[in-house]
Nucleic acid binder design. Structure first.
Lengths: 235, 235
DNA sequence: GTTTACACGTCAATGGTGTTGACGTAAGGT
DNA sequence: ACCTTACGTCAACACCATTGACGTGTAAAC
């Protein structure tokens, strides 16, 4: 069985499955995202996706070469959703902030797809559009090319890295997630002041702060530092 | 079978396996890291680890409640290695920089293991020591507690997130890695200037910059922004 | 309208995974 | 030397992704 996948636009004969569903790339991607959204990270397996579609699991291999290809399709869909409806204001700092938060948020809405795809280069249309947009914000904002490129790199990597990091936390099986929470309460909450004075002194602050993502603050720090590098910055 | 795991210090009877190995937490963790380092993340399964140890796979469950517990042990080992031989200089900026680069480097030295562990809270000794150290750098450096805690959070998350991100890239199977590289050359290198003017204009700079990790620059940006927040900063 | 080719849904099988309960042996405290 | 029990082993379960063979029904060709 080689080359069983037929490209989407070459498809003609859409035979319904036994249960009456008519498959398509679009339907599969949407169903996969819905499955994940409704039943969590563990719900996405070839078997379960087949069941949700009303098809034999192996039918998916007519549409995606393997699960990795399916995940890249999900990833590009997420990048696309991050940009839906966004409009540039022309103010580079506000625009970068918005893009960062949108990418982060979009990936977080589908944690386990994000996890598997945040470190891949898909080269698909939604991705290239995002690259173009962000580079444009920086160049139109007045940063010279070499600096714009360095900032672009740090900015995008940071957004994706935090997205993956927070997605990983959100995608943890319930048992592991509870284990992490309990570690905070049971271990860090009880470290003695003589061996761990700094943790002991700040524990309430720490426990409160760690509940949320560190990204928004890290993003603000990056934007502040970048502003200081702007040609127009005084000093 | 409940409560089959006996804590390491309660162990007395070290019965050798059929193949003559004498198991211990230490031996299992080291073997697991070696396995992952040599044969990739996929090589880490209970069965394969058992085989590498010369023991029945289920023997591992006498030492770790489940694979998650084993992963946390691996993560803590990496954190420990990041701190080996480090000494504070008393200069918060230099110390933070060193810690960031050490954590990042330590995880990168075992990309496959880092991938599996970078987003967990272990609560184990090496981890609590690292938390204490970093908090200490900030508090002793003159940051008031609420600010120190926020900075700590952003700093640690950034280091771990980038570590995981870069580890993921380093751990890609050769085929996928080459696919990503080719996407850069074939897709981004050929985007037409009329649809993607910014990418087209900066492609050589972009391709060169993206080869390395974005972390060092992102770290410098964060440190610069943090310096501006220091109580002693003018303005 | 009938024929025909093949796209694609289905079946069955392979070899992997984590995890558990039962069991017996040998190690160590007494 | 005895006895308890820690712990290594075995067998089994339920799940996983993936593949080769198969045949049906669709849609194009005539």
């Amino acid at each position: 069985m080689s080359a069983r996948v037929v490209p989407e636009d070459g498809r003609r004969r859409r035979r319904p499955t036994k249960q009456g569903a008519v498959l398509s790339e679009r339907l599969i991607v949407d169903t996969a995202l819905r499955l994940v959204g409704e039943h969590g990270a563990d719900a996405l397996s070839v078997r379960r996706l087949g069941a949700a579609l009303g098809a034999d699991p192996s039918a998916l291999y007519r549409y995606f070469r393997n699960t990795d290809a399916l995940l890249l399709a999900l990833a590009d869909e997420l990048i696309g959703r991050a940009q839906d409806g966004w409009r540039a204001t022309g103010e580079w700092r506000a625009d970068l902030r918005a893009m960062g938060l949108r990418i982060h948020g979009s990936y977080l809405s589908q944690p386990q797809a994000a996890l598997l795809a945040a470190h891949r280069t898909t080269g698909r249309p939604h991705e290239t559009r995002a690259v173009e947009t962000i580079l444009g914000i920086l160049r139109d904002g007045g940063f010279p090319d070499p600096l714009a490129v360095r900032i672009y790199h740090a900015f995008v990597d940071q957004a994706l890295a935090f997205a993956a990091q927070d997605a990983a936390a959100a995608a943890l099986p319930p048992a592991a997630a509870e284990a992490d929470t309990e570690v905070w309460r049971e271990v860090y909450g009880r470290l003695p002041a003589d061996s761990h004075p700094h943790v002991a002194a700040t524990f309430p602050l720490l426990a409160a702060d760690m509940r949320d993502s560190g990204y928004p603050f890290a993003l603000e720090l990056m934007l502040a530092a970048v502003a200081a590098l702007h040609p127009d910055a005084r000093g």
